[in-house]
């Protein structure tokens, strides 16, 4: 594992215009990602947690180049050179970044046999001289993820959700990527299958020297996969820390809220946990700190000034409770 920087995201913004009328004038924006700074080091898995509308999936898709950023930059380093993946890049660079999707039912083309889905990327890359070698390679990969070789000649509808997700994993790792974005890969699977897929992902990561960008709403899985966890709220990262630390000593009030809302078996559920409000829509982002409408510690400054992500106690937190402005205020009074 080396610690070279793989991704450098600077002030990334992804806005989706809301259009109306016959000439489709833009009447507003959905600010899915609204100013994200992030560095990912090679071999260091990052988990991103957040609720729906937090922009975590958009962030993932922008990182792999499926969505063009509205502002800011995603720089991807490949062999010492920097690339922007939404532009046209050499095929080996393009294929070194892959994505595994949430819905196993829409991630495979229903009209193609598994072999035809899997060979597409390999043929573009011209990785094999003969068809036989390629089939052999794909068969070995299927066996590696716990499927059978003969599944190559079946259609997606013959498989369960868990099996499809394994096939998607084969498609992603077949091109020997360095970096994989995983968008809630287990959230639509049965509980008994979910653990298998998580184990498989972790095994592959170690064996193939991959780096994961793991998107999830489940904090426990986020911790299990990622060395670090980033918490997103309404298009912004509110806290990043080593996963153990983030869970054991959360700083940001939203992180605390999120953790307290986790329901797990085998714990006492006697007392009722207070969890207020609902996230506002990303079309009308509140002024100042985005979380102030739900925050139990909201102060005057929170409505006016948006807090920066600053280092505090080993973590990076965007909250006035820990910011310089706040410290100044305290000093004044």
């Amino acid at each position: 594992m080396n610690n070279e920087e793989l991704l450098n995201i600077k002030d990334l913004k992804v806005y989706f215009p809301i259009r109306k009328g016959i000439f489709l004038q833009t009447v507003g924006y959905i600010k899915a990602v609204d100013g994200v700074d992030l560095q990912i080091k090679s071999g260091e898995n990052l988990s991103v947690v957040g609720e729906s509308g937090s922009g975590k999936t958009t962030l993932g898709k922008t990182i792999v180049g499926l969505i063009k950023p509205t502002g800011g930059k995603v720089a991807y380093n490949y062999n010492g050179k920097s690339f922007e993946l939404f532009r046209s890049v050499p095929i080996n660079v393009r294929q070194s970044v892959q994505m595994i999707f949430q819905d196993p039912f829409s991630s495979l083309n229903p009209r193609l046999k598994i072999v035809d889905t899997l060979k597409e990327a390999l043929e573009i890359r011209k990785m094999f001289r003969t068809k036989r070698e390629m089939i052999d390679y794909l068969g070995t990969l299927l066996e590696k993820v716990g499927l059978k070789r003969e599944y190559l000649y079946r259609y997606p509808h013959e498989f369960s959700g868990g099996q499809r997700q394994r096939i998607s994993i084969v498609r992603a790792i077949s091109v020997k990527p360095k970096f994989i974005v995983l968008d809630e890969p287990t959230s639509s699977l049965d509980v008994s299958v979910q653990a298998q897929v998580i184990n498989l992902l972790k095994e592959l990561q170690r064996e193939l020297n991959l780096t994961y960008f793991f998107i999830t709403h489940n904090v426990a899985i986020a911790k299990y996969i990622g060395q670090k966890i980033a918490v997103m709220y309404l298009g912004k990262i509110v806290e990043i820390n080593d996963s153990e630390n983030l869970i054991n000593s959360p700083f940001h009030p939203y992180t605390r809220l999120l953790l307290s809302a986790v329901v797990e078996p085998k714990i006492e559920h006697e007392k009722e946990i207070k969890v207020g409000g609902e996230p506002p829509s990303p079309v009308n982002v509140p002024s100042g700190c985005r979380f102030h409408t739900r925050c139990p510690f909201a102060m005057k400054i929170c409505e006016e000034v948006e807090p920066d992500l600053v280092e505090y106690g080993g973590a990076f937190v965007a909250c006035h409770l820990y910011s310089k402005e706040r410290t100044k205020q305290i000093e004044k009074s």
Binding site: L66, R94, D103, S106, L112, E120, S168
Partner: peptide, 26 residues
């Protein structure tokens, strides 16, 4: 916006081929 189209794009497939191989048959 189907995921398998996104996957084809990440494989570096050209737009024309994506239309022919993935969109039209479906």
């Amino acid at each position: 916006d189907k995921d398998f189209i996104s996957a084809a794009r990440l494989a570096g497939q050209t737009k024309i081929k994506i239309i022919i191989h993935h969109v039209l048959p479906n």
